[in-house]
């Protein structure tokens, strides 16, 4: 039930995730089924500890479900080996993290260029794509700065550029505005929306930031590991 005519980019079927913390088993996600529509701004929302990040990790194939299946653009992630999953992520998934997670020893330019190196993009094409997206996120003048020389907003812009430079099918952003002030957060959201409108990439966020939620095309509400509501705008 995607609400659109196109097939979903991500399909979760009865996905459950259980963690073991010492002797205690914690069920972070309890049998969630959902379809993420393509080329939309989808958000997984809910209070802290509801299972948003776990769900996002499962969608991004960086965590394996304890039960159920995760299909991204066709194949079931469970059928892929660790190397195949790595290659799949390298080509198809971009990540934006709450703490930006840039590589501290690389400049803004090099951080953005890195995903292209992973997929073997030719040098000229790599350079052109990196410079173009640096321009788009407004950091052309800061391209040689290291992360510790950039503000939080600038770092998150670099992270956005890094996630998008390879033109992935799916961009996953885990609370991307959580570490930014409201003004910077709004600017970052504007930027992502602007890039999404141009690239028609599928964005999936996990957030409890009302400012960000107000921009969602699709809202999936999670509570205690269960999908309790879905809303399309």
């Amino acid at each position: 039930m995607t609400g659109t005519a196109e097939p979903p980019v991500v399909r979760l079927r009865d996905v459950a995730k259980t963690y073991r913390v010492g002797a205690v088993e914690v069920q972070a996600v309890k049998g969630v089924s959902l379809d993420i529509p393509p080329q939309r701004f989808s958000m997984i929302v809910g209070p802290s500890g509801s299972g948003k990040t776990t769900l996002l990790n499962l969608i991004g194939c960086i965590d394996a479900p304890s039960a159920g299946g995760v299909e991204i653009d066709g194949p079931d992630a469970a059928a892929l080996s660790d190397n195949e999953l790595s290659d799949f992520r390298a080509r198809n998934v971009g990540f934006i993290f709450q703490h930006f997670s840039l590589i501290p020893v690389l400049s803004a330019y090099e951080n953005i260029e890195y995903p292209l190196l992973m997929v073997g993009t030719p040098p000229a094409e790599r350079r052109a794509a990196t410079l173009a997206i640096l321009e788009e996120v407004g950091l052309a003048d800061q391209r040689n700065q290291r992360p510790n020389q950039l503000s939080g907003g600038q770092q998150q812009r670099v992270a956005i550029a890094r996630a998008l430079v390879k033109q992935p099918k799916l961009v996953l952003a885990d609370e991307p505005t959580a570490n930014l002030d409201s003004k910077t957060g709004a600017a970052v959201i504007d930027l992502m929306q602007q890039v999404q409108a141009r690239s028609r990439t599928t964005f999936v966020f996990s957030t409890h930031d009302p400012q960000l939620m107000s921009r969602a095309d699709e809202l999936f509400t999670i509570r205690d590991g269960l999908l309790v509501e879905r809303a399309t705008r």
């Binding site: 290659d87 799949f88 992520r89 390298a90 590589i103």
Partner: peptide, 14 residues
């Protein structure tokens, strides 16, 4: 450790 997690998520193999 966090950097390792980041680049693994980005698609670097083990």
């Amino acid at each position: 450790t966090n950097e390792i997690g980041t680049v693994r998520a980005m698609g670097i193999r083990r």
